[in-house]
Amino acid sequence: MKKAGHTMLEGFKRSYSIVLLLALWEVAVRFGIAPSILLPAPSAVALALVRDLGDMHYLSDLALTLYRLFTGLVIAIGGGILIGIGAAQSRLGPLLLEPLIRVLSPLPKIVFFPAFLLLLGFGSAPRIVLVVIDAIFPALLAAYFGARAIDEKLIWSARAAGMSRFACVFRVVLPAALPGILTGVRIAIVIGCVVVFLSEMVAPGDGLGDALIRAARGFQTVQMFVPLVTISLLGLALDYAVVRVQSTLVNW
């Protein structure tokens, strides 16, 4: 109990500036310094968020966005780790992968979105593909550089002890590269959240991003903040979950 109180105090100390900022914002709106039509109070946004989370229409938008996000992330992270570790295992891999990374990773991937719309229609598919090509790079790069940075003596001793090449990848390379890979996964998750939302704003139809566009057309400022806060909190929560996994792994 005492420990819980202590960590709560620590938590407050660590994030007091956010509390302060939200309080100032609330006061500014309450006292009419900022007009609430243009800038709704944080409490009003929080209330609207809670209300919308009980609304079937909003929940269906949220479900669509989550479906697109998670499908894209699973493909991007799984594929990225597979390609990254695979390429690090052979002599040819780096020669093929490094130039490809140099050309493709700095490209603004969202510019290919119109092409995906043309080829895949206006449904979920083009948004999932956009999430994949945007989120794959941090996962791939982390896996590739993580696997290349492994002390080769570890692999030699495992191989000398009779471990097969294939088993070695799973028992030695992957565990050693995992902390770095999880850092890549964290970046991939946040990029995925941002990109799926933006894809729904650029070509509206449904999903959380579309909810923002609808609210903007109706000048409902509070409703504009709700989807934005939802996707940001989702990003923070998923990121925090990976950090927790990462810290247990490092302790081990």
Partner: peptide, 13 residues
């Protein structure tokens, strides 16, 4: 806290 916010989505606001 600002890091995961889709910044371009702030445009309408």
């Amino acid at each position: 806290a600002f890091y995961p916010v889709p910044k371009a989505a702030l445009m309408p606001i």
